[in-house]
Design a binder for these strands. Structure first.
Length: 783
RNA sequence: GGGCACAUAGCUCAGCUGGUUAGAGCACUUCGUUUACACCGAAGGGGUCCAGGGUUCGAAUCCUUGUGUGCCCACCA
C-alpha cells in the first residue's frame, strides 16, 4: 500500500478507472430488479454550479450507490435542461440582446452554443465529484429525442381534449413578451402609493376612489360598490365620468367589494388583476384594453399613447395633480406578482394560447400525491397546498424562439388546425409543411405555421418518460416507467413535480415515480441562501482541489433530507480528516492481512466478539436508515463505529496480539472481515478512498471490478451472548478508567503501570484483556 | 389571513414510538512523540433542553397556548 494518500492523484486515477471500465453503465438485460432515477436536469443557464447543487446531487447519489450495492440494476441517467425561457434569458443577458434585435435562427444558434458550453461544464463537475451517472445515457431537453416526446405529448393531450386553445386575459410578461403560467409567478414585496382620485357622477359631484394603479385609469370600464353600502345606493345604475379620458362608465354592485377599503368605491379596469377579469365574466363588461404586448399603451390611452406603464403612471399622476383630481396619496407596502425569470410585474393581456386543463382534475392529482412516497413526508403538504390553490389552467404556449415548436399548422383560408402524424415527429412547422396537401375542412392549399414554442416545463414534465425511451426495447421501457426515484429540490414542487404528475396522469393514469426525495438548499456560512448575485460562495472546483471530492461529499452528508445546509469549511476538513484516518487505519490493517487468514475462527476473543457485535448493529442501523433515505443518520452510525469503536478502541486492544512473537491468526480474520465492511459502508459516501483500499487488497480476492459493484454488507454470523458482551463492556469501561488515571497523573498511555486498583466492578476473567489493552502489570479488583 | 418546518452546550446539530447522571463534532483547557494516523490519542470545563399551562409515577420527548426564526401560498380596487 502507498505510504501516503495524495487525494488529487488518486481520485483522478479512480475517475478514469470508473470511466474506462464503465462501472456505472446500466445493463438493460440484467436479471436484477431495476432501480431508475429521474435525475433533475440542471438548467445549463444556471451558468455556474455552486455547492448547493453539489449537496443535492450528492445526497441523491448516496442513495443511488446504496441501491446499486443492495442488488439493484441501477439506471442513473443525466439530463440537461437547455430549452425555453431560462436559456433565452441567459443568452439575452450574456450578450445584452433581446429577441427583437436578432433573427430567430441567429438567436437559436446562440442558445445552442451556450447550451453546449453549459453541458460540458456540468459534466466536468459531476465527474469531479464522482457522481455515478451512466454517461452513455444522457439527454438534453432541446434535442430531437425530447422534441419528439414533447410533441407526442401535445398530440396525445390535444386528441384527448385536454389541451384547448382559447383567447382570454392571462398573465403576460412585458419584458419577455410572452404569456406565462401561474407557476412562473413569484411574490415580491413592493413599496407603492395608494392614490385617492376623484371621479364625477352625472350631476358633477365628486366620487372618491382608491387605486394603486392610476396608469390604468384610461382603461376603466366600471365602478363597483358593495350592494349593502347605503352611501352609494342612489348611484347604482347611473354613470360616472372617468377623469382625464372623460369617458362614461356604469356604476354597478358586486358582493366582493369591501366596504371598509378606501372609500368603498372600486374601479375596474381592463385588466387590473385577476379579480377584475372575473368581474368581466360575471357582469359582461365591455373592454378597454390599453396595454399592448410590448408593455406600451395604445391609442385608447389618448395622449399617453406609446408610453410604458411606468412612464404613463408618472404622467397621469402629474396631470391628475394639476387638475386637482388627485386628492391624496398614502405610502403603502404591498406584495405583487412578478415574473420569476426577470422580476417584471406581471400584467394581464388577452391573447390566444394553448392551455392544459388542470383545474378539473384537482382531486385526481391530490390522489396521486397520496400514492407517492415523500421523503421527508411533510413536503407532500406543499404539493397539496399548490394543487388546492390552483386558479388557472396551465398555459403552455410561449411567444418565444428557443423551445420545442408546437406541431401545428393552420389553414390559411379557414383557420383549421392541422396536426402531423405521430410517426412524422418531431416536426418544425416553421421550416416544413404538413404532409397533407389540402385542408380537410375547406380544401385550402396554403398553411401557416404556429410560431409559438412550448413552455420549457412541457418537456421537463416528461423526464421519466424521456429517460425510459432512451431504450428501444418496450419491455425495458415499461420496467423503467414509472421511475423508482425522483430526487429534487423543494422550490420546484409546484413546477417540475406538479407538471410531471399532470402529464403522467393524462397519458397513463398513474404516478410518474414511486419515491420522492426532496433536498434543501445550500446556504453560506452565515445561513444566507447562496446566490450568484450575492457572490457568497467559493466555486466547488476550488474546494475539491484543496480538500478532495470525498471531503466535499462528506459535507453533503451533514443535512437531513429537506433541510438547508450551511457551507462550512470545517465540515469539509472533517471529511478530509476522515479520509486520512480511513487510509491510515487501512494501511495498518493491511500490513498484517493475507487472503489465507480470512475465515473467522470458532474461538474468538471477547474483544473480537464485541467488535463484530458492534459492527452488526451498525450494519443493521445503516441499512435501515439508507432504506428510508436517512443517509445522514446512517453516516453518523458508521462514523461512530469506525472512529471510536474500531480505531480508538479495537485497534488499540489488539496491537499486542498483532505485534506478539506468535502471529495471531484469529485477529487477522476479524480484521479482514471488519475492514472490508467498513469500506463498503462508507462506499456510497466516500467512493474514492474506499475504492483505493478495495483495489489495493480486496479486489483480487473478491473479484468484483469495483467496490461499487460489490454487495452491501450483511451481518457477520457468529454466536453472540448478550450477557458476555455486557460483561465485556464493563472491561472497556475499566480501560477508560485507567486511561483517566494515567491522564490525571500526566502519564503517557504507553507507560506501563505496576499496579492499579479498579474503582468499578469487572469480572476477573477480563483482567488479562485489560492488562494488555492498557498496560498494567497487576490489576487489583474493587474492594 | 392560511399552511409547513424549526427553536437543545460558544457554534453546527443528534436525541425517532416519554424511562436511570441530556449526547456528538468543532471551539476551549490540561496532558501525551504510544512502531496506522499530531489531519492523532487521553482527560476535562461548559446546558433553567424558547416561555407559560396541562397529561403522567415520570416530559427535551406527548397535548395546548404564546413568542421568535425560516420557507411556501393567498389577498393585493
Amino acid at each position: 500500500m502507498l505510504e501516503k494518500y495524495i487525494f488529487s492523484e488518486r481520485e483522478e486515477c479512480w475517475r478514469k478507472y470508473w470511466e474506462e471500465n464503465k462501472i456505472y453503465e446500466f445493463n438493460p438485460d440484467s436479471d436484477k430488479p431495476f432501480y431508475s432515477v429521474d435525475t433533475p436536469p440542471p438548467y445549463v443557464s444556471a451558468d455556474h454550479l455552486h455547492f448547493g447543487h453539489i449537496m443535492s446531487y450528492s445526497q441523491a447519489e448516496f442513495i443511488v450507490r446504496y441501491k446499486r450495492m443492495a442488488g439493484f440494476e441501477v439506471f442513473y441517467p443525466m439530463g440537461f435542461d437547455d430549452n425555453g425561457l431560462p436559456t433565452e434569458r441567459f443568452v439575452e443577458k450574456k450578450y445584452n440582446i433581446n429577441k427583437k434585435q436578432i433573427t430567430r435562427p441567429e438567436f437559436i444558434n446562440k442558445c445552442l452554443e451556450e447550451t453546449k458550453i453549459g453541458a460540458e461544464t456540468y459534466r466536468k463537475l459531476w465527474s469531479l465529484i464522482g457522481i455515478s451517472v451512466d454517461w452513455s445515457k444522457t439527454y438534453s431537453t432541446i434535442n430531437k429525442h425530447c422534441q419528439k416526446i414533447s410533441q407526442w405529448s401535445f398530440l396525445d393531450l390535444y386528441k384527448k381534449g385536454k389541451i384547448i386553445q382559447r383567447e382570454e386575459p392571462g398573465a403576460w410578461c412585458t419584458t419577455c413578451q410572452t404569456a406565462i403560467a401561474q407557476a412562473d409567478l413569484e411574490d415580491e414585496e413592493n413599496e407603492s402609493q395608494m392614490n385617492y382620485i376623484n371621479f364625477k357622477d352625472e350631476e358633477g359631484n365628486d366620487l372618491l376612489i382608491a387605486t394603486t394603479r392610476p396608469e390604468l385609469i384610461p382603461a376603466c370600464v366600471a365602478l363597483f360598490v358593495n350592494p349593502n353600502d347605503s352611501r352609494y345606493s342612489s348611484l347604482v345604475g347611473k354613470k360616472a365620468i372617468v377623469p382625464i379620458s372623460k369617458h362614461e362608465v356604469p356604476i354597478m354592485t358586486d358582493e366582493s367589494v369591501d366596504l371598509e377599503f378606501g372609500s368603498g368605491l372600486m374601479m375596474v379596469c381592463t385588466w387590473g388583476d385577476n379579480e377584475d377579469a372575473k368581474k368581466y365574466r360575471i357582469h359582461n363588461l365591455e373592454t378597454r384594453a390599453i396595454l399592448e404586448a410590448d408593455g406600451k399603451l395604445n391609442e385608447l390611452a389618448g395622449e399617453f399613447v406609446g408610453m410604458t406603464l411606468k412612464d404613463a403612471r408618472k404622467a397621469i399622476l402629474e396631470k391628475l395633480q394639476n387638475n386637482g383630481e388627485l386628492i391624496r396619496q398614502e405610502n403603502i407596502s404591498h406584495v405583487l406578482n412578478v415574473h420569476e425569470r426577470c422580476g417584471t410585474p406581471v400584467e394581464l393581456i388577452k391573447t390566444k394560447q394553448f392551455f392544459i386543463n388542470i383545474l378539473d382534475i384537482k382531486d385526481e392529482l391530490l390522489a396521486l400525491g397520496e400514492k407517492m412516497n415523500w421523503y421527508p413526508a411533510h413536503m407532500k403538504q406543499r404539493y397539496i397546498d399548490w394543487v388546492k390553490a390552483l386558479q388557472w389552467d396551465w398555459c403552455i404556449s410561449r411567444q418565444r424562439y428557443y423551445g420545442v415548436p408546437f406541431p401545428v399548422w393552420y389553414c390559411e383560408k379557414c383557420g383549421e388546425l392541422i396536426l402531423p402524424e405521430e410517426k412524422d415527429l418531431p416536426v418544425d412547422p416553421m421550416n416544413e409543411s404538413p404532409k397533407i396537401s389540402q385542408c380537410p375542412k375547406c380544401g385550402g392549399e396554403n398553411f401557416l405555421p404556429e410560431n409559438d414554442v412550448m413552455d420549457t416545463w412541457m418537456t421537463s414534465s416528461l423526464s421519466p418518460l424521456i429517460v425510459s425511451k432512451l431504450f428501444e426495447n418496450e419491455n425495458v421501457q415499461n420496467k423503467l416507467y414509472p421511475s423508482s426515484l425522483r430526487p429534487q429540490a423543494f422550490e420546484i414542487i409546484r413546477t417540475w413535480l406538479f407538471y410531471t404528475t399532470v402529464k403522467s396522469f393524462y397519458h397513463f393514469g398513474d404516478v410518474p415515480f414511486k419515491d420522492i426525495m426532496i433536498s434543501g438548499h445550500g446556504h453560506d456560512e452565515k445561513g444566507q441562501k447562496i446566490s450568484k448575485r450575492l457572490g457568497n460562495y467559493v466555486p466547488p472546483e476550488q474546494v475539491i482541489e484543496r480538500y478532495g471530492a470525498d471531503a466535499m461529499r462528506y459535507w453533503s452528508t451533514g443535512a437531513n433530507l429537506g433541510e438547508n445546509l450551511r457551507y462550512s469549511e470545517n465540515e469539509i476538513k472533517n471529511g478530509s480528516r476522515l479520509v486520512n484516518k480511513l487510509f491510515n487505519a487501512s494501511k495498518f490493517c493491511l500490513s498484517f492481512l493475507s487472503y489465507e487468514n480470512k475465515e473467522l475462527s470458532e474461538d474468538l476473543e471477547e474483544e473480537d466478539k464485541w467488535i463484530i457485535n458492534s459492527l452488526n448493529k451498525t450494519v443493521s442501523l445503516a441499512t435501515k436508515y439508507m432504506e428510508s433515505y436517512q443517509y445522514s443518520r446512517a453516516r453518523n452510525e458508521i462514523d461512530d463505529f469506525f472512529w471510536s469503536k474500531f480505531c480508538d478502541n479495537y485497534l488499540e486492544f489488539i496491537k499486542s496480539r498483532l505485534y506478539g512473537d506468535v502471529p495471531d491468526v484469529k485477529v487477522k480474520s476479524v480484521l479482514y472481515q471488519v475492514l472490508l465492511i467498513i469500506m463498503k459502508l462508507y462506499a456510497p459516501f466516500l467512493p474514492f478512498i474506499t475504492e483505493e483500499v478495495y483495489q489495493d487488497f480486496y479486489q483480487k480476492d473478491i473479484g468484483e471490478k469495483s467496490i461499487h459493484l460489490s454487495s452491501w454488507p450483511k451481518n457477520i454470523e457468529i454466536e453472540i451472548n448478550e450477557e458476555d458482551i455486557a460483561s465485556f463492556e464493563k472491561a472497556i469501561e475499566a480501560v477508560a478508567e485507567i486511561r483517566g488515571h494515567k491522564s490525571d497523573n500526566k502519564l503517557s498511555l504507553g507507560k506501563e503501570l505496576d499496579e492499579y486498583q479498579l474503582k468499578i466492578e469487572v469480572d476477573e476473567k477480563h483482567f488479562d484483556f485489560i492488562k494488555r489493552a492498557i498496560k498494567v502489570k497487576n490489576l487489583i479488583p474493587r474492594k
